[in-house]
Every structure is written in structure tokens, then in C-alpha cells.
Design a protein around this nucleic acid. Structure first.
Length: 348
DNA sequence: TAAACGTGGCG
DNA sequence: TCGCCAAGTTT
């Protein structure tokens, strides 16, 4: 038996039954089968935070955000710099800029109420195909085709899809659509994702625990972890740069606001050289007596970085002079690491 | 369409 | 130690 369309009803029943007893309990989630709809604001916020991000990493951010800003209207009123600081450490900072733009769009253009259709959600900043479908299904009970990385993996195994990712995306989405129905759309989406996360895992899938293994073509072949097939990835280049830790001797450090576009866009950062293949021959930001504080290593999605750290004392200049403890909290991780290195190397 | 875009945990 | 990977979106 495989996951052909004629078996969809039995497959759906098996997975929804499994979800009734195995659903993960998560702060943004209603219990399975709950008729009380989850707050669209919390669903949307969790979905954005969870993009390319693990549940354990996103969870404390979700708790802090919802405690500080209980509604989308509260969030819409936040200063940009406060929002960016609150997102620091979570990564993919374009999400934070779009999150704020989306909250303001809902507050200003939708009367503070999230739109309840997939198409209207899709028009919001930072809401793509996945997030629009997820919010429509989970918050509004729309039978949307919710396809994330988990669903792609589950479907690729159910149907033993040979096409490598990412080229297989459209095919996987079409196949996923054959399993969507009007009954319990939100639970269906979350059941598929929970299965992918806890049972149909990337490595060492737990087929003996799987409620739909009987429908799975990859399981029948005997090597389910062969799926999804993936295209080879390009090697990650390495870059080098210098970051300057300029201190005023009174507990403050010089930061700069980075441009909205590009890497770490909209975040505060340390003053830096360009980051290039060769160690740059760069001019420090002030005529101070710079000491070498070593270097830190950091890995981004598309390159790795050796960042040399230099420390000096100074004042003035066109900087955001920020208390060191506050800076540590507001900086993206790469700069927080560099600042720690600088502070350790020249304790006051 | 492919590339840009962070971070931390795990095998 | 290090590549893989996690609830993607934008340009």
C-alpha cells in the first residue's frame, strides 16, 4: 500500500489519530481538536520566529515578545531599534524588519485584525507561501496546503520522490495537496509537521513508531533516510575582517547602526572593515592606540568569517555610545562574540 | 531562478 | 571537529 490518492482518507485518519495522542505541547499551540481558535497574532509570530529556526531557540523569544507585546497593535507601536534589539541572537534579521512592517500593516490597514484568507495574508510583509498557508490553516481553519521542510521530507518519503531538492519543490507541493481536506485543516498541518519533526526525522527516522509507515514508498524500499534526495551544495567561502572595540573608559562602547539592506541589516554592530578573502588593510575609525585582542570565528549561511578584534580607548566620533551590558544584548551574535573578546582582552 | 540571509545544536 | 540542519522570504 502506498500513498496514492485513493488511500488519502485512511492515511489522513491514521495521522490525525496519532496527532490526538502525540501532539507536542507548544506555547503558541491549541490542544488537538480544540474548537477555540488560536490567536492569529500568536500563530503568525511563532511561524515567523520558527522560519529556519529550531523550537528551543525560538521559544524564549516567543515568550518575551508576547509578554512585552500581547497584541499586534502593541507590537506595531514599538520603536524600530527596540524591536531589532529584542530579536538580537535569533538571526535572519530581515524577519524582524518585516515583522514590524507586517504588524504596522495589520494595525493601520486592517484595523488591528489579521486578515483570515491565505491570499490576504500572503500580501503582508514577510509572509510567504508557507506562513500564509500555516496561519490560514492553524488560526482560521482554512484547508490550506501547508508545506515546510518537514512536509517536504514526509511527502518525499511517502511517494519516494526521486527529483532532488530544491528542484522537487513544486512536485512535492502538488503531492502534499492531494492529502489536504476540509476536515481539521489546522490539526492536519501540525500533525504533518510534528510527524516530520519527531518521527520522520532527517536522520534515523523512527519508522516503527510511524502511524503511516504502511503507506510509505520509501519505507517499502527499505532506505527511507535516502529521501529527500538533495542536490550537491556549493562549498562555503571564507572571509576575513577587523572589528574595532572602542571604549570610553566609563563603561560605554562605540556602536554603529547598519544599513537596512544586506547582512545583519538594521542591527547595531561594531565598526568593522570590509570582509573579504584577504585580510583587509583597513583604517581604524579613530586615531587611537589600538591593541590586538585576537580574533573570533563565526559561520554564516553562505560564508565563514575570521574577525580580528582591536581594542582602544577613545571618545566622540559619530557613534552610538552604548553601555556595554546593553550592547551585549542588542548585538547580533557575531558582534557579541567580538565584543566579549575585546572586553576580556583589556579589562578596565 | 539562484543567491542572500544567522544561529546553535547534534551525530 | 565539522557538515548538516531547523516551521522560509525576498530580490
Amino acid at each position: 500500500m502506498t500513498a496514492v490518492a485513493s488511500h488519502a482518507p485512511e492515511l489522513r485518519t491514521a495521522l490525525l489519530d496519532w496527532y490526538d495522542s502525540h501532539a507536542r505541547s507548544l506555547p503558541w499551540r491549541a490542544p488537538p481538536g480544540s474548537t477555540a481558535r488560536t490567536d492569529p497574532y500568536r500563530v503568525w509570530l511563532s511561524e515567523v520566529m520558527l522560519q529556519q529556526t529550531t523550537v528551543p531557540h525560538a521559544t524564549p523569544y516567543f515568550e518575551r515578545f508576547t509578554a512585552r507585546w500581547p497584541t499586534v497593535v502593541n507590537l506595531a507601536a514599538v520603536e524600530d531599534s527596540d524591536l531589532m534589539a529584542a530579536w538580537a541572537g535569533l538571526g535572519y534579521y530581515a524577519r524582524a524588519r518585516n515583522l514590524l512592517a507586517c504588524a504596522r500593516a495589520v494595525a493601520n490597514d486592517h484595523g488591528g485584525v489579521f486578515p483570515d484568507t491565505e491570499a490576504a495574508l500572503l500580501a503582508l510583509p514577510g509572509v510567504g507561501a508557507y506562513t500564509a498557508a500555516a496561519v490560514a490553516a492553524i488560526a482560521f481553519d482554512r484547508p490550506a496546503n501547508v508545506v515546510d521542510g518537514n512536509v517536504e521530507r514526509v511527502v518525499s518519503r511517502l511517494f519516494a520522490v526521486q527529483t532532488p531538492l530544491p528542484a522537487a519543490r513544486p512536485e512535492l507541493k502538488r503531492l502534499a495537496a492531494t492529502l489536504v481536506a476540509d476536515d481539521r485543516p489546522g490539526d492536519w498541518a501540525q500533525a504533518l509537521m510534528d510527524l516530520g519533526s519527531t518521527v520522520c526525522r532527517p536522520k534515523s527516522p523512527l519508522c516503527l513508531m510511524c502511524p503511516i509507515s504502511g503507506f510509505c514508498a520509501a519505507r517499502a524500499e527499505g532506505q527511507p533516510d535516502r529521501y529527500p534526495v538533495k542536490a550537491a551544495k556549493a562549498a562555503r567561502p571564507h572571509r576575513q575582517g577587523i572589528a574595532w572595540v572602542l571604549r570610553d573608559g566609563q563603561g560605554r562602547v562605540a556602536l554603529v547602526r547598519r544599513p537596512d539592506k544586506g547582512l545583519l541589516g538594521g542591527m547595531v554592530g561594531l565598526p568593522t572593515s570590509d570582509w573579504a578573502e584577504e585580510v583587509p588593510d583597513a583604517t581604524p575609525p579613530a586615531g587611537a592606540d589600538w591593541a590586538d585582542a585576537g580574533a573570533i570565528e563565526h559561520v554564516f549561511t553562505h560564508f565563514s568569517l575570521t574577525l580580528g578584534v582591536r581594542v582602544a580607548q577613545g571618545s566622540g566620533g559619530d557613534f552610538l555610545w552604548t553601555p556595554e551590558a546593553e550592547a551585549l544584548n542588542a548585538l547580533p551574535t557575531v558582534f557579541a562574540k567580538a565584543l566579549v573578546r575585546g572586553l576580556e582582552s583589556s579589562p578596565e
